[in-house]
Design a protein around this nucleic acid. Structure first.
Lengths: 104, 104
DNA sequence: TGGCAATATGTTGCCTGGCGATACATTGTG
DNA sequence: CACAATGTATCGCCAGGCAACATATTGCCA
């Protein structure tokens, strides 16, 4: 499976991250690998892109996070807040409307 | 119909313009109004965004253009080249793959 | 007739956002 | 023991979107 031109993803990166979190809490690196695998290696979200997004989403109150150290691995787990879940729905609907317009 | 957050369109603007031209040659202002109407006023492509895109697509050889003055209105008509049509197909496929990944 | 909206195309310059590069700590592997 | 992988983070460059502005013509209404 060929990689999807990262250019095409601009504008929907926030949505992509929120969407990934809808199936349960995840830490950054896991979000990356989830996307990579579930897209069959077509979507590679870079660290320099992901972490600033997560920090922004946290600041906006769409996600909350907490550190965990259980495995020795220092991990920062993120999960959707109630507001985040609402936003995800709103943005997903908007996205669908847009897809309809471009009529795939 | 609410407007679609312009932020969401970033990255697929080129595709949107190419796509609009697939149904026949158009001039800039007509591309704008076509998008505006066919999206039921959800997508408003600004002049400051559109014209630079058209110039870029022309430079890349994806569209060709010619001036016409028939109605007194000075219009620059754009149409897809063979290369442009191929690119449109390639990018549309890529877009569809992406939509599958985000699973609307 | 005079003025304003709509039609039509274009450029300049600001600001944001993506991401390559880099940094750093720990764990797993050959 | 070195190197890959895991894990999080920031800095700074560059490209892209678009508000604002410039300019010309046509159509409409008072």
């Amino acid at each position: 499976m060929d990689a999807i031109d990262p250019e095409l993803l601009r504008g929907s990166l926030d949505l992509m991250v929120l969407s990934t979190l809808s199936s349960g809490k995840k830490y950054g690196y896991l979000i990356q690998s989830t996307l990579w695998q579930s897209s069959r290696e077509a979507i590679e979200l870079k660290a320099g892109t992901l972490y600033p997004i997560l920090h922004k989403l946290e600041k906006e109150g769409l996600v909350k996070c907490h550190w965990e150290d259980d495995t020795g691995r220092r991990r920062k787990w993120y999960e959707l807040t109630a507001v985040g879940r609402k936003q995800l729905k709103r943005r997903t609907d908007e996205w669908c409307r847009y897809v309809d317009c471009l009529r795939c």
